[in-house]
């Protein structure tokens, strides 16, 4: 059976108080690396784009609390990748930030 390439696009708002800092960007990059799909993270305010696999690029977004982010996942496992990344933005980043260590 031929494999189907999927594309999924979602919008989220950064909801953790410190924004996409180093520890959170590393967690995002590690999650993105677990999938084969290409995942792009766009910061809407100044239209900057990062490859989700690159902590360097994610940090260069300077995405702060309340920033609107558009995520694009493209590839065979785009659906699963997007689910995992949405989970980070909606739940995990906030939990991590509340630990107050970064």
């Amino acid at each position: 059976m031929p494999k189907t390439a999927l594309k999924r696009v979602e919008e989220v708002v950064v909801n953790n108080k410190s924004g996409l800092h180093a520890r959170i960007s590393t967690m995002l990059a590690k999650t993105a690396m677990a999938f084969s799909s290409q995942i792009l993270v766009h910061k809407q305010r100044d239209r900057k784009t990062a490859d989700a696999r690159s902590v360097l690029e994610l940090l260069s977004l300077g995405a702060a609390k309340e920033d609107r982010i558009r995520i694009e996942a493209a590839g065979e496992d785009a659906d699963q990748a997007m689910d995992a990344i949405l989970e980070l933005f909606t739940v995990r980043f906030k939990e991590l930030d509340d630990e107050e260590l970064d």
Binding site: K17, S18, G19, L20, H21, A22, L56, E57, L59, S60, L61, G62, A63, A64, K65
Partner: peptide, 13 residues
């Protein structure tokens, strides 16, 4: 946190 984030942003950019 915003200053910290902006410093990281400048460095990585």
């Amino acid at each position: 946190p915003s200053e910290h984030l902006r410093a990281l942003e400048h460095i990585t950019r």
